[in-house]
Design a protein around this nucleic acid. Sequence first.
DNA 1: TGAATAATGGCCT
DNA 2: AGGCCATTATTCA
Length: 104
Amino acid sequence: MVLADRSITDFQRKVYLELLNVPRGTTITYAELAHRIGCGSAQAVGQALKRNPFAPDVPCHRVVAANGIGGFHGQRSGEMIEKKMRLLEEEGVSPLSDIPDFQP
DNA sequence: TGAATAATGGCCT
DNA sequence: AGGCCATTATTCA
């Protein structure tokens, strides 16, 4: 497991673990993930993801907002997320594709 | 309908 | 102890 006990808190580990628990090709909302690990605060999860020390090991791009759109910053904020999205699509996970509500 | 703002909860330094 | 956040929900026009 790439998530070896490093300088991260238990909470963080849970978040990353849950993310790895998300099947490739599926997305999860911050609130859902937060509730899953028993937190109840998507902001905390967001922070953990932002600080994720396991950048490509943890599919943070698989996490989307509650509305199911983009995700990372509530909206597509910068270009850095676009880059991740690119890799995301290569992995077969498109947040904007897994959302039935998001139909361009 | 769309967008912007305010409030919230818990984590990290 | 304080500040922070890649959120969420509500409200305004």
